[in-house]
Amino acid sequence: MNDFYLAVSAFLLVNILVGLVRILRGPTPPDRMLMAQMFGTTGVGILLLLSEAMGLPVLRDVALLFALLGALATVSFVRRYWPVEFAEEESKE
């Protein structure tokens, strides 16, 4: 049963690595930032599966922190890096 959870978490890790292409190729900055958001969501899934596979229930607290703080980088990106008054020069990139 532990092998099953480990296999599913390895599959989710492969998902993350495939999604890395979007950071490297994303045409605009919000596309790249969106990948960080997706890394957060998938990381929560991997941590929940690993907490079951490795028998460490404390990993659920780490997953809680991931879910809480994963969006913080996106919010900071929108408010500090990409305010709308600089948007015209940014969208041509």
Partner: peptide, 20 residues
């Protein structure tokens, strides 16, 4: 918690992208 935070981030990014 994941639902709430990702809904917030999605709204912010989409709204900013539309206004940009």
């Amino acid at each position: 918690l994941a639902l709430v935070t990702s809904a917030t981030a999605c709204y912010l990014v989409a709204n900013n992208a539309l206004r940009a």
